[in-house]
Amino acid sequence: MALKVPADLEKEIDKRITHYPESKRSAVLPVLHEVQSHFGYISEDAVVWVAKKLELEPIRVLEVVTFYPGFRQKPVGKHHIRVCRTLSCAMAGSAELMEEFCKKAKIDRSKVSHHDPIAVSEDGQYSIEFAECLAGCGTGPVCMINDDFHEEVGTDKLEEILKNCD
């Protein structure tokens, strides 16, 4: 099934493409970002659509999608949580933070792997993954929920943070 791209999204995409007067191919990342932020993930149809838009072979788009951890090929929860795993946050307690998040948001992480790092709650409300250093090491542990950045996230703050998501 061909991807249905609303007119305003396509307009935004067309504008992004103009930022690369030398090479349309340079727009692969920005266009994928637009597509992912609208649809929630990059489907096979989306890959084909983006490739056509940028006059590329679909593999040129797919290889980008599969390389970058920031692009995903499956839907995530309504609220996607990224907990920083790296050293400074780990020292501040990010492993405990991850466990508490999973408990509170009812997420089972037992099946995650390198190639499939995201776990989603049964009701689809929440999903979670570890991220590498989010450049907030001075105020760890840190996490992102969708586009929002949270610092000094003690486990005692979780209830409130999750409540404020909705």
């Binding site: 930022h19 990342l29 970058y68």
Partner: peptide
């Protein structure tokens, strides 16, 4: 000046990886 967003890979900080990424490729 245009803003170009990466996609979560550390190696994009290495300048030639960054350039490849800005060309729309794997970094």
């Amino acid at each position: 000046i245009y803003v170009h967003r990466g996609a979560g890979a550390y190696i994009c900080g290495e300048e030639t990886g960054l350039i490849e990424s800005l060309e729309g490729k794997r970094p």
